[in-house]
Design a protein around this nucleic acid. Structure first.
Lengths: 227, 227
DNA sequence: CCGATGTTTTGGTCTTGATCGAAGCATGCG
DNA sequence: CGCATGCTTCGATCAAGACCAAAACATCGG
């Protein structure tokens, strides 16, 4: 009866609105201080502190002390992936927090999903990569083709450095706003970092929104032309 | 701030122990009545009824009236997948419901995972099937090889009858006690049923424990020799 | 040292929701 | 029909935990 993994505990941790807001805020990938998270969650500092220690006990967060500040971040990419899959499922059941309308067009257009690009732009990139054969979908798994390696290198990314035993190179991630897949994994991360490096796009403070410069958007569209 | 899917609602739904128990009980894919679920969750019928309607409102369950009974099942495979991924994550964080020690060795040795064999014996069987080429892993998916069909038939199982549009023949299932895969799907179910039919093993009442007879264990070990 | 800033602990209030007994519906069986 | 069975609704109880103010703790800059 009382056997097996304790999903109830995990559910309870995620189930509180304040904690869910904090986790969502951390999906942006950057570490945030306790005060920032308190504000994001809309609760007082003591309350936030209590929530944060619960989340940490539950293994969802990692914390790093730095001077007077205490920075919190998602424990690892598995945590981010788990949350995003929850978001995908919630969205598929129509569990939205605001009305379905395009209240936040910027967020639907391009946003960061933990560390990679999501939203309309993310899906567009993914579709192009599949379409041109850079990435091949084998069932659930994604593989970078040989031609794809050249293609990615040509974009200015060093693939050698992306291989890691801890994390897959390519992974698909369900996009809650588009209800389609976009690219996660270390390649997904590198591509977003590259766009920002090149000055094509910028991350907005206190939000998951990614804004492309006019020139950056032009370039992006040129590189990923298929609509 | 209030953007994105409402994972808090989903978390709350899963976060109650009674509801989590019900969902876990339904992971086997078979539909259960309200009374059965009440017992599985360890709550009274009125309480269970209330939980079930919440789960249904949340889109996690579907219900089918049949005579006096009301059968509940997971809404779809996406729901099952979401729960399984939650279980995997919970297990990876050590969120187990009883103490880590070998409190229940029998349970770790062999138990039923809804309808198929899990625990040490389940993992052993799985490893043997893979090793001898009966089952081939293609990424996430499992396929029964041609040689495998013969092998399984030789064990006394009628494969024809196992094919179903509703359920895959072979599926891997993460074993929380071993942290490795074992065999689910209709073949997994049939194998367990076969062991019990042959008198190799018995299910214990009110428990997930499977006990092998000495003779049954000897046979099992002979059929699946690889450790 | 001291005061300012960031965070946690303490102590107490209050709301949410899980729970069950009893009563109310619905369906099937004889 | 009428009784048994399966489930839901109602009403009331009760406990877990979310919440904040105030005080304690920690760290830095001067």
């Amino acid at each position: 009866m009382k056997e097996g993994p304790d999903i109830a505990r995990l559910g309870t941790l995620i189930g509180d609105p304040a904690r869910a807001n904090m986790l969502t805020a951390l999906m942006g990938g950057q570490a945030l201080t306790a005060s920032e998270l308190a504000q994001a969650a809309g609760v007082s500092l003591p309350t936030a502190s209590s929530h944060l220690s619960k989340l940490e006990d539950g293994g969802l967060l990692s914390q790093r002390k730095q001077g007077r500040h205490r920075y919190f971040a998602l424990a690892d990419t598995a945590t981010g992936a788990m949350l995003e899959s929850l978001m995908g499922f919630a969205a598929s059941r129509g569990h939205l927090r605001h009305k379905p309308g395009p209240k936040d067009p910027a967020l639907r257009k391009a946003r960061v999903c933990y560390d990679h690009l999501a939203g309309d732009f993310g899906v567009r990139m993914f579709d192009n990569l599949i379409c041109e054969g850079t990435i091949i979908a084998e069932g659930e798994n994604l593989v970078l083709s040989e031609a794809g390696e050249a293609r990615v290198s040509a974009l200015g990314i060093n693939i050698e450095k992306l291989h890691s035993p801890r994390r897959p190179l390519c992974k698909s991630c369900l996009d809650w706003s588009e209800r389609r897949s976009h690219l996660a994994g270390s390649l997904g991360r590198a591509l977003l970092a590259h766009f920002i490096d090149q000055g094509w796009a910028r991350r907005m403070a206190d939000s998951r929104v990614i804004t492309f410069t006019p020139e950056g958007e032009r370039r992006f569209m040129a590189v990923f032309p298929v609509d």
